[in-house]
């Protein structure tokens, strides 16, 4: 579903991501963990086609992000760490805008907006301007817009930040449901407990380089993900 091969991206002299390779398969929830500034957001944005990378390749469903970014974008959805949406629109206008861009049919968009917005308890607020939304409400709207066009791959940067416990629980359910239906999810998080319980596979990155990756059970063994992460941080410090 998503194949990252030898990805390298620098900002001036600094290498943000260095020779990173990962493979996310259909049905997998893949967690991406690292300290602040480790290169997680850069990697995610490169996968989405927001950032141009220096070398390596990224494939979505076998299509190169570098060679055919539009086709890749049609197959995925992205939720950034800070959901800065169009403040001048209402929630429903934003969702319709996204649906128009992805060419979602009238019936499908109506059904999906109703389903996800009522599930996340945002439906009544959809007529409100986004500028009046709280951070959590914006995050919920970003989640609905991501699921709106039924993408195969969903990439999320810190998706649980700002969500209330109920919405966070619902999002976890949505993620599992999506992957059970053959989709894939690649997301970054600092909440290691969530990653440990939710992810099928995990990758830990440090200063742009992959430290460890694989199935959750293999990576953490008998200890917790937190102790593995802290141990690896100490080793590489």
């Amino acid at each position: 579903m998503l194949r990252i091969e030898h990805l390298t991206k620098s900002y001036g002299e600094k290498k943000a991501v260095d020779d990173l390779s990962l493979h996310i398969q259909p049905g997998e929830i893949y967690g991406f963990i690292g300290h602040n500034g480790a290169g997680k957001t850069t990697t995610l944005k490169s996968c989405v086609g927001i950032l141009r990378f220096d070398s390596g390749e990224i494939y979505v469903d076998g299509i190169s992000v570098r060679a055919n970014p539009l086709e890749c974008k049609r197959r995925l959805a992205f939720i950034p760490d800070n959901p800065d949406l169009y403040d001048f629109m209402s929630g429903i206008k934003y969702l319709n805008f996204v649906a128009d861009i992805f060419g979602v049919g009238e019936k499908e968009r109506e059904e999906r907006i109703h389903r996800f917005a009522s599930m996340l308890e945002l439906e009544k607020d959809l007529a409100q301007p986004i500028s009046a939304y709280s951070h959590g409400m914006k995050q919920k709207l970003a989640v609905i817009s991501a699921w709106l066009h039924a993408p195969r791959l969903i990439i999320m940067d810190e998706p649980f930040v700002g969500l209330d416990p109920i919405a966070a629980h619902l999002l976890k359910g949505l993620m599992r449901e999506h992957c059970d239906a053959g989709g894939a999810i690649f997301f970054s998080t600092h909440v290691l407990e969530v990653a440990e319980k939710l992810c099928d596979k995990v990758a830990i990155i440090r200063e742009g380089r992959l430290v460890v990756s694989g199935p959750m059970d293999e990576v953490k063994g008998n200890s917790s993900l937190e102790s593995v992460f802290l141990e690896l941080e100490d080793q590489h410090a």
Partner: peptide, 25 residues
């Protein structure tokens, strides 16, 4: 800066072309 709260009422949605959606934005 809050506006008067308007409760969303479901209504029929219409599909627009990409250019027209971008223009409307």
């Amino acid at each position: 800066r809050g506006e008067k709260k308007i409760v969303y009422v479901r209504r029929k949605m219409t599909r627009r072309s990409m250019l027209s959606a971008l223009y409307a934005k």
